[in-house]
Amino acid sequence: MQVKEIFSSQLPVGETLSIKRSRFEPLQKSDNLKRISIVSGTHGDELEGQYAIYLLTSWLNENQDAISGIIDIYPAVNPLGIDTITRGFPLYEVDLNRVFPGGEDGFLPGQLVHALVQDIKGSDIAIDIHSSNIFLREIPQIRINKEFSNFTLPLAKELNCDFIWIHDAVTVLEATFSHTMNSLGTKTLVVEMGVGMRLTKEYGEQLLCGMLNLMKKEGIITTENSFEAREPFLSEIGEVFYLNSPSSGLFVPALDHCAIIKKNEKIGTIVEPLTGATLDTLYAPNSGILFTLREFPVVYEGSLLARIFGERDK
C-alpha cells in the first residue's frame, strides 16, 4: 500500500492541508488492471464512510494476495471539515460537492476538487460514500442519476445496499463529484447511509460486504471468499412519499427507522415544551418502508421528517 498526497495547501500558521490517497495494487504489477476509486469525507459532518473505508483498508491489508486490480482510497476529501465538525470547506463555507469539476485557476475549494478529479480520472469505477446529514437517518442506499443508470445500475445492485434510488437529472447536481466522474467515463455510485456525525457499525459492515462483492465481480480482487449482496428495493417499482413538518416545534418520533408501516399509521408528533401543547400529529401518507427518519428533533415548517418507499395504496 502506498500513500500519496494529491493536493496540498500550506495554512497560514505552521500547518499543511493535505488530501491523501492510499493505493492498493497487486504485488505483481501488470498493464490494463481495473481501477476502483473510493471516496468519502466530502462533507465534514459525514463520518459513516470513515468506518466503512477503515474496514476495507483493514481487509485489504490482511488479504494482500487477493488484490488483482488497483484500489484507490480517498477517505477524507475535506480533512479540515472532518476534524472540525464542519460540513463545508472551512473558511470558505462552501459545499465541496457543489463545486465540481473545479479548476486550477478557481478559488481554493475549486482547486482542491479539480486535483481530486484529475487523480481519479481514468478509474473504471468510483464509489462516493456519504452519510446522511445530521438531521436524517437513512438506510444504506445508492443514489443514481437516470442519465447514467444504464451502466451504473448493474454495479449498484452488487453493493449490498437496501435501496436504489434512481432520480431524474437535475442541472444543479451537475456540480457534484458523481456527475463529473460519470461524464468523464468513470462509472460512479453514490452511497448514502446512517446519520451525520455518528458511525453505524452494522451499516459499515454491510457496505464492506458490498464493496468486496462488487470488486470480486469486477475482477479487482480474486478470492475464494463469497460475499452475498442483498436484493435492493428499486425506486422504479414504487414511489417515494415525503413527509415535511407542517409546523415548527420539537419532533418526537413514534416509530423506529426502517419500520414497515401502514398508511395512516402514526409517525410522530410535533410538540411545544413551553406549553405542553401537541401542535401536530403526523401520519403515514402511504404504506411502505420508513427509509428516512428525522434524527435531529428541532424542526421548522417544511423540515423533512420522513420518507416512505412503497407501491401507491389503492
Binding site: N133, V172, N244, G302
Partner: peptide, 22 residues
C-alpha cells in the same frame, strides 16, 4: 441557521419542500 442552506440556491422555491424552499 438550522440547516445552513443558502436561500439563494432554492429558487424558484417549492411550497411543499424544505423550509428554505418554502
Amino acid at each position: 441557521p438550522l440547516d445552513k442552506t443558502n436561500i439563494n440556491t432554492m429558487f424558484p422555491g417549492y411550497e411543499l419542500g424544505e423550509t428554505t424552499q418554502r
